[in-house]
Simulated scan of single mutants.
Amino acid sequence: MKKLLKFCLFIIAIYLFLYINNHWIITTEHIYESEKVPESFDGFRITQVSDLHDALFGDNQAKLVKKVAATNPDVIFITGDVIDSNRYNLEQSLQAVREFVKISDVYYVIGNHEVATNKVEEIYEALSAIGVHVMPNTSMILEREGESIAILGIEDPLNGYETQSMLGTALAGVDREDLTVLLAHRPEKFNTYVANNINLVFSGHAHGGQIRLPFVGGLIAPGQGFLPKYTAGTFEDGETTMNVSRGLGNSTVPFRIFNLPQLVVVELKSK
């Protein structure tokens, strides 16, 4: 009887561990300080939502929406894979996004899973219809008190185009004196972002390495293989700072281990 009780307690413990690892959303905050941040954008808050993959966080995504609202964002960036190509359910994914647009302006780029569905235009149209700024290899200028920053977005290279080509298109017409802020799904393209002197990058895709090992980091990531470099946190090279979100959901591998779902917040500071 004692052995059976211990076994049952072990199963319950494993269930709780896996449940928490997949549903307990944490918020990580960073400060980005630069001379290129205009004074009118000092304190400007960006909340990044990445790799939702149709995951559910409460009824009608209430837990996720509450967490995002609590970050007090000036803008929300969605950096790809809001849907999952293995269980495509656009309506479920839109539940959260419909609430996001009530909180602040929302900017969006696709990930590899959107491309894999072959329904990119359907996704773009649905998001545009609810007020999301869709960013397919393009840029938008945000202005405050006569000062500006440039928001850029590029699509995922699974669409058949080189990252450099898409980034060049997005940069066309951008004043390089402005702070450049890029939404790009793939962190493994960091060297391309650096080569183009992008100031601030928001990326995801790696799911934090899916399983995170103490003192080591992520175990595996698409496009990077085992013990990948870019799975979470901040990376700097030259003029470029890249923030990589661990994301929220899962795809082929159903569990996250020592890798809680994550929202990333970056607050701009002027020097």
Rank of each mutant, 00 (worst) to 15 (best):
K2P: 08
F7Q: 01
L18R: 06
T28L: 09
E35L: 06
K36I: 13
D42T: 10
L56Y: 08
F57R: 05
D59T: 13
V65E: 01
V68H: 02
A69Q: 13
A70D: 10
I83H: 00
S93W: 08
L94T: 03
V97A: 07
V97C: 11
V101E: 03
V109L: 06
N118Y: 13
A126V: 11
L127G: 05
V132W: 14
P136N: 07
L142M: 10
A150E: 06
I154V: 15
N159S: 12
Q164A: 15
Q164W: 08
Q164T: 15
T169W: 09
A170R: 01
V174A: 00
D175C: 00
R176M: 09
E177P: 00
D178P: 02
D178A: 14
L182C: 04
L183A: 03
H185A: 07
V194Q: 08
N199E: 12
N199T: 09
N199I: 10
S203V: 01
G204D: 02
R212M: 02
P214L: 05
G217M: 05
G223V: 08
G223T: 13
P228T: 06
A232Q: 12
R246T: 10
G247D: 06
L248G: 06
S251K: 01
V253G: 08
P254N: 06
F258K: 12
L263H: 12
K271A: 13
K271T: 11
